[in-house]
Amino acid sequence: MLRLQVKSYLTELKMKGSSAHTLSNYSYHLDKFISFVESSGLDFTTLTLKQVKQFRNHLVQQGLKPRTINAVLAALKSFYDFLVDEQEVQGNPIITRRLRVKEGQSLPRFMTPEELKIFNRWLKTIPRHMALGYRTMLATGMRVSEVSSVTPNDIIVLDNGGYIFRVRHGKGDKERYVPVIDAGVVNELIDFVGDRRDDEPLFGVTSHAFKWWARKCRLETGVAFHSHRCRHTTGTQLLQRGVFIDKVQDVLGHADISTTRRYAKTAPEAIYELAAKVDEIKERRALYRFWLR
Rank of each mutant, 00 (worst) to 15 (best):
M1D: 13
L13F: 11
S18I: 02
A20P: 05
H21K: 14
L23R: 13
H29T: 08
D31M: 14
F33L: 08
S39V: 01
F44K: 05
K50I: 13
Q54H: 15
F55I: 04
R56C: 07
Q62E: 14
P66E: 01
A71I: 03
D81C: 13
V84W: 11
E88H: 06
Q90S: 11
P93I: 04
P93N: 12
I95R: 15
R100N: 09
E103R: 12
S106F: 12
L107F: 09
P108A: 08
R109P: 02
T112D: 09
P113C: 04
E114W: 12
L116N: 04
K117C: 09
I118R: 07
I118D: 01
I126N: 05
I126K: 00
P127K: 11
R128G: 14
M130T: 01
A131S: 09
T136E: 07
L138M: 11
M142C: 15
S145T: 00
V150D: 05
I156M: 08
I156C: 03
N160Y: 08
V167A: 09
D173G: 15
D182M: 00
A183L: 01
V186L: 08
N187A: 14
L189S: 01
D191E: 13
G194P: 00
G194N: 06
D199N: 13
E200C: 10
F203K: 02
W212V: 08
A214W: 00
R218Y: 06
T221F: 02
G222F: 03
H226W: 05
H228S: 02
R229W: 05
C230Y: 02
T233G: 06
T234I: 03
R241D: 14
G242R: 10
V243H: 04
F244I: 09
Q249R: 13
Q249W: 02
Q249I: 06
L252R: 01
G253C: 04
T260M: 07
T260R: 04
A267R: 14
K277E: 08
K282T: 06
Y288I: 10
